[in-house]
Structures are given as C-alpha cells and as structure tokens.
Design a protein around this nucleic acid. Structure first.
Lengths: 218, 218
DNA sequence: TGTTAGCTTTGACACAAATCAAATATCAGT
DNA sequence: ACTGATATTTGATTTGTGTCAAAGCTAACA
C-alpha cells in the first residue's frame, strides 16, 4: 500500500483489506468463468495464473508472490478469464473491487496506486511477450531465474538461492517450451558451472553469466 | 466512450478529448523512455506498439486501430516503455491522464470505463501469450487473421477482405515467427483455397477452415 | 520401511521453423 | 516513367526443440 495517507484515511483503506482467505496448495483462488468480485493481494505463498484452450492446452501467464495482486483480468467482463492456483499453502487479502473503486474516488493517492498496479501488469506482460516471441530456450530460462531471484531478494530472501515452487512443466508452460527442454537447459547451465541444481533447489553461482546469456545473445 | 451521462457531464468529458494530434505514416506517437502525460484514443489509422532489446531485436506487442487506446504502459513509471508507430497516416485524441483521473473521481461510470480498458488490455495480452507459448505457425496466423477481420468488421468493414497495414516482418514479430514463415504460411493457406492473397490484400474465402485450424489443432 | 505415484533426467530421433540465398514484385521519390 | 530501395516469395539446407521412451529420484502415505 502506498504512503502519504493520514491516520483516518489509513483506517478506511485498511477496512477494504481486512478480509483474509486461506488457499491450500493446489486449490483455486478463482477460476476461468468465475464471477468477478474482488482483487486479491497475496500475503503468503506463491500462485500461478494460467489460461487454457478448449483442447486442454495450458499456458501459464505468471507466477505471483507476496505483495502482488491477482484478479485484474476479471474487471473487464465481470468474470475471471484465467485460473489462479496456489502452488503452496497461501493466504490472500480479499479486496472487493467496488470498495476499491469507491475509496479511490475519495483518495487520489489510492486511485493512482490502482492505476499503477494495472499498468505494471501490462508492462510485465509486454516483457513476457518479448521473451516468448524473440528468445531462445537458454535466454528464456536465464531471464526467468534472474527475475525470480530479483523478486525474492526484494522480499528479503537470498540473492542466489531459490526453492522453486513450480514443476518443470509449469516453468515450461510459462516460458513456451517443453518440460524436457527446461530440464536439459537446467542441466546445461549446471554443467557450465553457472548454477547448481538439485530438483527444486537452485543456487545461482554466476549471475553475470546468466545476464550475459539473455542480453548479449544475438 | 460509455453511455449513461447527462448532457452536462458529457460536456466535461468531451473537454478531455478535444485535443487532436495527427501522426504521419512511420512516425512515432510516443517512444520508449518518453515522459508519460496522456493516453491516446485512435480516431483513424492503425498503429503498432513494440518493445526492443538492447541488441536491437523488436517485438511487436500489438496492432491498434480506431477506437482503441494506447499509452497505458506509461502510467506505472511516468514514462513509456514501448514505441507506438503509425502504420498509415493517423489521427488520435490526446487525453491528458491527470484530467482522466480527475474526472473519473467525479464520474463513477467513467472510472469503471477506465478500469475496464486496462483490464481488457491485460486479458488481450494473456491471449497473445497463449498464442506465442502454445501455438504453431499456422494456428498463429489463422488466429491473427480471424482477430483482424473481426475487429475490422466491428468497425463497419468487410467480413472477408483485409488490406494489411503491416509488413510480413511486423506480422512475424507479433506472432513470434520469421517473415519467411509468415509468407510461406500465407502461400499454404492460399494453395488450400482458404484465403486469397496478393501482397497486402487478403480475402478470407473459408473462415470456418481458419477457425478449425486454430481451435481443432492438437 | 516399503510402496506407489509423481517428478525429473537423459537419450535417440523427428520435424517445424530458422537461416541462407536468390529471384521477383512493389513503392517512393526524382 | 525511371530508378533505387524495400518488401515478398520461393527454394535448399540447417538446427533448435519437440516427441517418444526409459530409467532414476523424491516424497507422501500406509
């Protein structure tokens, strides 16, 4: 939440955020087609969001963690158009969107904050499109790992160690490649001494080498 | 613009939209890094929006036409993070974002409208991610063509005839494939009698066949 | 502590799309 | 209307990933 509010204002804003909901690992926070009522601020746990085709192919569109907002897809049609699944036991703040709209008419700071959140999501997706449209498998995985540690580090975790909450298949879906290719690319980075991998545990040994892969590669 | 306003309200809203700007073919409406001040509603002409890597690869992230809004990427950092280029001579309404924010605090209908526009863009990008991550060249081009005629038809143009405003390379960039592959796929559809192509002119002969390609394909 | 089910790794092979290359067509500007 | 620049098509070949298959690893549960 943004700064710059009086105590009284904070109180009103806090009210929007007071409802909590726990989501067990593997459970849906919301699903494609569900009626849209609220945005969700993740307090703990990691989620994946995904869309599916009729024939059953899944595309993971993002992995979200503490402090991030999910549910923005639902605003336009008053119904969600993707699935949000907890990858580990999680807790979210349920923020009824009508309350958000009411309050953000009252508080310009909050209004601006909401707009920035939506714009940030658009910009994030632009970057993913670049990744999916232009990059090769190694670049994609390098970008993915760097993005992940950076976000984890911003939340007080290690700069170099990651415990992945998602499977190779989910990583592959997000990055537009098959799980075998994800696995092979992990192995390749490991052979080159850039990372250490043991199943879900990844240690980034040479972050510069990863950066090099994904911005020097022609 | 949404309905349900009084005459007086309409007047105030119209004021936001009164500034016009002409953009010549090939010119930038805004570029990556430009200070963000306004959203732009396209009145005439077609734009492409794109992002680039340091090493010069371009990823087209969308083609926008009359009635669509560009510039949402700029809100989060008060600076644009993509380029918007006119693919033909165009005219836009310049809508200073601070005016939009002021007015949408006053008019809940407008506020809701702005939120929906941003959410719609998020949902659109989700679909593009599915396309880039999961589909094969033929499916991508089929989906692209169907999307294009559908939007053109909604604007009063033909259901079956398209004059492309973008090159094969720009289509390829958008769809995550090389221009040669775009050209070959056009030729293949043409050989199969699904479409007729002559350079930028495309006539969709069998729309069902295109639909079949992109939702029946395993 | 054994057993099962679900992940992950690795190998061999196939194939869709990229790359390289050349010919043709079209457009913009003089 | 000519001319150079740009866009498009098509062919030959290469290559990065996908596909299929099998074995190994891990974790959860009885």
């Amino acid at each position: 939440m943004p700064l710059g509010f009086t105590e009284h204002e904070m109180k009103k804003i806090d009210d929007v955020v007071k409802t909590r909901r726990r989501v067990k690992q593997g459970d849906l926070l919301f699903g494609d087609g569900d009626t849209f009522t609220s945005l969700y601020a993740i307090r703990t746990g990691v989620f994946k969001t995904s869309v599916s085709t009729e024939d059953g192919r899944e595309q993971v569109i993002g992995f979200q963690m503490a402090g991030e907002i999910v549910g923005l897809d639902g605003i336009v049609n008053d119904a969600h158009s993707c699935n949000a699944v907890a990858l580990e036991d999680a807790e979210v703040c349920v923020m009824p969107f009508s309350n958000i709209e009411d309050l953000s008419r009252e508080f310009p700071e909050l209004q601006r904050h909401v707009h920035k959140i939506m714009s940030r999501e658009i910009v994030r997706e632009n970057k993913v499109m670049m990744l999916l449209g232009n990059m090769r498998a190694e670049e994609r995985l390098a970008a993915f790992l760097l993005n992940l540690v950076q976000r984890l580090h911003a939340r007080g975790f290690s700069q170099s160690e990651i415990v992945l909450r998602m499977t190779r298949e989910e990583i592959g879906s997000y990055l537009g490649m098959k799980l075998e290719t994800v696995s092979r690319t992990f192995s390749k980075f490991s052979d080159e001494g850039i990372i250490q991998v043991k199943q879900r545990y990844v240690r980034i040994v040479k972050p510069e080498a990863l950066k090099k892969i994904f911005d020097l590669q022609a």
